[in-house]
Design a protein around this nucleic acid. Sequence first.
RNA 1: CGGGAAGUAGCGCAGCUUGGUUAGCGCGCAGCGUUCGGGACGCUGAGGUCGCGGGUUCGAAUCCCGCCUUCCCGACCA
Length: 480
Amino acid sequence: MARADELSITPQSQDFSAWYNEIVQKAELADRGPVRGTMVIRPYGYRIWELLQHELDSRIKATGHENAYFPLFIPEEYLKREAEHVEGFSPELAVVTHAGGKQLEEPLVVRPTSETVIGEMMANWIESHRDLPLKLNQWANVVRWEMRPRLFLRTTEFLWQEGHTAHATEEDAKEEVATALNFYREIADDVALLSPVLGEKTPGERFAGALNTYSLEAMMRDGKALQAATSHYLGTNFAQAFNITYQSGEGDLQYCHTTSWGMSTRLIGAVIMAHGDDKGLILPPKLAPYQTVIVPIAKGPETSEIKKLADQFAVDMERMGIRTHIDDRAYLSPGFKFNAWEQKGVPLRCEFGERDISKGVVTLHNRLTSEKQLVAIDKLSETVQTELRQFERDLFERAKEFRLANTRYASSKEEFFEQIQSGFVVAEHCGTKECEDLVKETSSATPRCIPFDAKPTNGACVICGKVSPYGKRIIFAKAY
RNA sequence: CGGGAAGUAGCGCAGCUUGGUUAGCGCGCAGCGUUCGGGACGCUGAGGUCGCGGGUUCGAAUCCCGCCUUCCCGACCA
């Protein structure tokens, strides 16, 4: 018996952030880089990102966007052209002042996001209404100098996708913003199984330079919110700053309406914290590098039959599109492997030895329910397939129920501050900056969004009593 | 940047108060053997500029000074 305290993880209930840090390391998702705040994404973690990337990229392409790549370095002056944009980003910029052995005449910023360079290029490329809409996307790294880094959640450099589009009219641009939001919803609900709330950001929480910002707010298992993706309507702000104009059918010059939208490696952090438990990760099947792992249990030297069967299972499952891995490491005990793969979040595990084979069955273990069932050998791959689908439904339902169970309505200031300690609180709010700041100072919670699907209500701000401009209750929570 | 803690093997730590052989322990790692149905065991072995620089001393992981870094808590944030 190895020592449990050295092998296991700090329970979530004891210290959620310790749990998070340990599981990121132990599941071999990522490691810290040598420079403060940087992250090395390890193969197992990167595979999750690739799977996510593939799901999202195909949706981006299916809706008529094209991938492109823009430079990492941006002239500092570009950032300054849009007033709110600079103000929002300047505190977290990394600026290159020296290159080629001498001081640069104009400093270069390492992109924190690419609205500005892309805007500059769009201005060159767009002449006529016939060039619109222009729908671009790029997969890239960006740098934001964060004070308190945490792997996947806040690192100085992270990976993401940023969509940038230009349209002739506000209506077209707003439809685009909704399209982007919709494929994020699909990713969050169908792929990552997060069951987030969709809504609009309050003015104070908007992207720097946007007219409207929309987001998906997922709930982590400690009750905190995490923004899973965002989509912005930028109006003509960037078009004016970068002179992105087109000649209309009538011959007059008009500013384009632009949008931008993004999802980052932070989503992996969301998956970890929304699904994981005290045994480790629980991965949604569509994001699991291995959807099932095969652990053959060898006894004595006569392992060839067992090995052959394991190979056969792997071939059958791969043929059905199920990502499978055989763990035949001879130097580890089965029990060790069970725990290790549970820590890594593999949804299903097939284990079998002499005892099973003699009965013509294998044992199938479910990471979510911890249940084991015996499955006939010739039914294994199809059972795995149906179990994976069931696993997805169960995991999604669990996330959804958890969110609903931890969402409360506050009707008074006292109730609000009591409930805001954990989970989502829905309440009437006046939307003023002073009042949002007051909430933040006293509880460290922020308005997460004005949910789309909330019923219309008319009430006074639960904090200060002023009239609510939203016409519905909005969501507050502590957030990552 | 403000408040707190810590730097000794890959990881977790002991040793420091009271300076003194070759700096230990657990896990992990390597080799061999026995094992294998929920974190196996035995034997053998590899692995260290004790964060960096200076000082005190016959002698510093240990005492003194300076610096650096990391982690936790607050202000920022996808």
